[in-house]
């Protein structure tokens, strides 16, 4: 934003060429998924597609396994996000506002679920679930997702709290507001957009998750797990493409909103 590009510092031609090749490499496969959601072939794909049709959308909409998976994914992401909003905000308030023993350890602990490969946390939860004789359920999926959703909310809120400083909170306390009033009328309006952005990212992260879910879901399928199973035992291939588009859209809407919110508050 701060740079105005002056002639000499733009990338030289070979670099620009390499950049565009990399961009094509990133995007062509995703575009292919979009295109083949409308192909008239149903088993094997040829390039270019022999014809285009909208009928796969209708077939997808008629499949109950799709709706069940979508519903499960949305419910899991919703509850995991709610838990993350509460836990992430509390942790951010603690770390930004106060000094306490073990603060460093806590920031590290918060980061752990994102820093470790999904298989490590997934296996750990799986072991705990089995050793505790806990049946797989909606809640075992939610618990796994919330562990890594917390840190996204935490990150957004802690950055905002650091930026708006302590003076307003002190002023509010001085004027006799109690803790709840201070939170409701001073802190909350200041962090609302950070909460929303963090919540949106947490939702997208949960909606998208595959690896931890494979260890905590048992027989239920979230939408990405449903796609996973379609890759192993395909049935009506283009339906998988239609569902893939649904997943991309549902992930993207919150991401774009979160992006807007963070940009607005930075300006």
């Amino acid at each position: 934003m701060k740079k105005s590009s002056t002639g000499g510092n733009t990338a030289p031609l070979p670099v620009a060429l390499g950049a565009w090749i990399a961009l094509l490499f990133l995007h062509v496969p995703v575009l292919i998924i979009l295109l083949y959601a409308f192909t008239t072939e149903e088993a094997t794909y040829s390039f270019p597609p022999p014809g285009l049709t909208l009928r796969w959308i209708g077939i997808t909409m008629g499949r109950t396994d799709f709706w069940q998976a979508l519903q499960l994914s949305l419910r899991v992401a919703g509850i995991a996000t709610l838990a993350a909003l509460v836990l992430g905000t509390l942790a951010a308030a603690a770390v930004a506002r106060s000094r306490f023993f073990g603060k460093e350890a806590v920031s590290f602990l918060l980061l752990l679920p994102l820093a470790l490969p999904g298989i490590v946390t997934g296996i750990a939860l799986r072991s705990a679930i089995s050793l505790g004789n806990i049946p797989f359920s909606f809640w075992t999926i939610v618990i796994g997702h919330a562990t890594f959703c917390v840190v996204v909310v935490y990150n957004n809120v802690v950055a905002r709290l650091r930026r708006f400083g302590n003076s307003q909170v002190e002023a509010s306390m001085d004027l006799g507001a109690n803790g709840w009033q201070t939170f409701r009328y001073v802190i909350f309006p200041n962090i609302a957009s950070a909460l929303l952005a963090g919540g949106m990212l947490a939702f997208a992260l949960s909606f998208d998750e595959v690896i931890v879910t494979t260890f905590t879901a048992g027989q239920q399928s979230t939408l990405p797990i449903w796609i996973f199973s379609q890759l192993v035992r395909p049935r009506d291939r283009p339906v998988t493409n239609v569902v893939a588009i649904v997943v991309i859209l549902i992930t993207f809407i919150p991401i774009v909103i979160a992006h807007r919110l963070t940009q607005e508050s930075n300006e």
């Binding site: 992430g88 506002r97 000094r99 806590v106 490590v120 946390t121 919330a146």
Partner: peptide, 27 residues
């Protein structure tokens, strides 16, 4: 501030302790 910090961090720390750290210790 110390007491407050501990009270604020307790739920999250407890959550991660039960659902992250304990499972890892089990492993």
């Amino acid at each position: 501030t110390t007491a407050q910090g501990l009270a604020l961090i307790a739920p999250t720390a407890l959550y991660l302790l039960v659902f992250m750290i304990v499972p890892m210790i089990l492993v």
